[in-house]
Design a protein around this nucleic acid. Structure first.
Length: 413
DNA sequence: AATCCACAGGAAGCCCGGGAAC
DNA sequence: GTTCCCGGGCTTCCTGTGGATT
């Protein structure tokens, strides 16, 4: 290549964006349309913090993309702001329990939020949990104000490590001498409270809020407001926003997904060098989002999970249909022997299969063949091609997929 | 109605690598 | 050093179960 300006060619032309960031899920808009009621309700509970009282604990439910996180953070920001202007000590701590996913980690995370103000820290491992808890109490009391702790995706944590953390946090106020604390739990699974100890349930569920899904009109409205911030004039072809809202409404009214679709569609329009986002770009985006998701998941998949996945693909191919757990395990064992990886137990492999199912890479559902047992029916779903393409980027894996003449062994099945 | 298959999936505990405190 | 913690991956052992077959 000559001295051509390689970046310039991408920088200069016809960017259709005015501000791309406004379409990202991290962006916090100044207003949240169709969530006024929820904001008000949440604020009416949390205002107690500004009066020096203890706000009630709250459970928030709603499907993904219904604005739970957004509304909570929004109100939290306002709370801090107002607290500052009134000179009231309030603290608002947000934790995503899918990322911070054990009792110990949540406690250290919260503690470190306070502690960093006075230059210490709790190590990420090493201390007994109750010591972290005591330290947390000490820190909150030293802070002395009202603390609101948000546990987002709380169902993930409870499913993984039980409700010990929630039990401890629910009696937090009786351990505090001067400060006050309240908990906001956010979940998209309505049934998860069934897993909780009744005491925890009643203590944390003092207030309950349910976020309804957006309908297509509301999503369209949200999109229009964001699009006005994100794009230059007349960039969106007519019908595009309606199409996206309709697609998102099909998926239980997921606003985040709608915004993603719009952003990715616009990006592919931009790449084409076009000046308008057309409906075709939306369909392109639909596929692109899915395939990006899959390759991202596969990239970070542990080797054993990959082996199980390949076994499912290969087994399906050999059998010409869906597999049972037992069949998949047989293929998996062969696969390990061939490639020299250690063979895990069937118990572990069923767990890996379930994980792959939850990641949406394969479909595994429990079926009963009556007298002939009860097992899981395993299918490498509609994204089969995408999965294989993604896996094939790794040479060592490619070898396994080809299975170079080793079918003989597998034919024995 | 009872049986019984082929697993599902819970519980406990091991081992390892991280670290703290003494 | 030793001894204590926590978490992740894993095994061992186990009880539970939907529904075709008996």
């Amino acid at each position: 290549m000559s001295t051509k300006d390689i970046f310039g060619q991408f920088l200069k032309p016809n960017s259709i964006f005015k501000n791309r960031e406004t379409l990202r899920s991290t962006y916090m808009p100044e207003e949240l349309p169709h969530r006024e009621k929820e904001i008000e309700q949440l604020a009416s509970v949390l205002v107690a913090a500004l009066r020096g009282e203890t706000p009630s604990n709250i459970f928030i439910y709603g499907k993904t993309g219904t604005g739970k996180t957004c509304v909570t953070k929004f109100v939290g920001n306002q709370l801090i702001k107002t607290g500052k202007s009134l000179n009231k000590p309030v603290e608002f701590i947000y934790i995503n329990c899918q990322v911070v996913d054990t009792q110990y980690r949540v406690l250290t995370h919260i503690t470190n939020q306070f502690i960093k103000k006075w230059d210490e820290r709790v190590p990420f491992t090493g201390w007994p949990t109750d010591e972290v808890y005591s330290k947390l109490m000490e820190c909150i009391d030293r802070f002395g104000g009202a603390v609101t702790i948000v546990l987002d995706e709380i169902d993930k944590l409870v499913m993984k490590s039980g409700d010990d953390l929630l039990y401890n946090l629910s009696r937090i106020n009786s351990d505090l001498k001067v400060a006050k604390a309240s908990i906001i739990g956010i979940s998209n699974d309505l049934r998860f409270t069934e897993l909780l100890d009744p005491r925890v349930k009643s203590s944390l569920g003092e207030e309950e809020m349910i976020f309804p899904s957006y309908n297509a009109d509301e999503i369209k409205d949200i999109l229009e407001k964001r699009a006005a911030l994100a794009f230059k004039e007349d960039v969106i072809a007519p019908g595009v926003l309606s199409l996206i809202s309709a697609l998102a409404a099909q998926e239980h009214g997921d606003a985040r997904r709608a915004l993603d679709l719009l952003r990715v569609a616009a990006e592919s329009a931009e790449r084409d060098g076009g000046t308008r986002v057309e409906e075709s770009h939306v369909y392109e985006a639909l596929e692109r989002i899915e395939s990006d998701r899959i390759s991202e998941v596969l990239r970070t998949l542990p080797t054993q999970s990959k082996l199980v996945l390949i076994s499912a693909i290969k087994g399906e191919e050999l059998k010409g249909g869906s597999l049972t757990t037992g069949e998949a395990y047989e293929v998996y064992k062969q696969m390990c022997n061939i490639s020299g990886y250690p063979v895990l137990t069937e118990r572990r492999v069923t767990e890996l299969i379930s994980e792959l199912d939850m990641l949406g890479i394969i479909e595994a559902r429990v079926v009963s063949f009556g007298k002939y047992g009860r097992t899981k029916e395993i299918k490498v779903g509609s994204q089969r091609g995408e999965v294989i393409a993604s896996l094939s980027r790794e040479p060592s894996i490619l070898e396994l997929l080809d299975m170079k003449g080793k079918q003989k062994k597998l034919d024995a099945l």
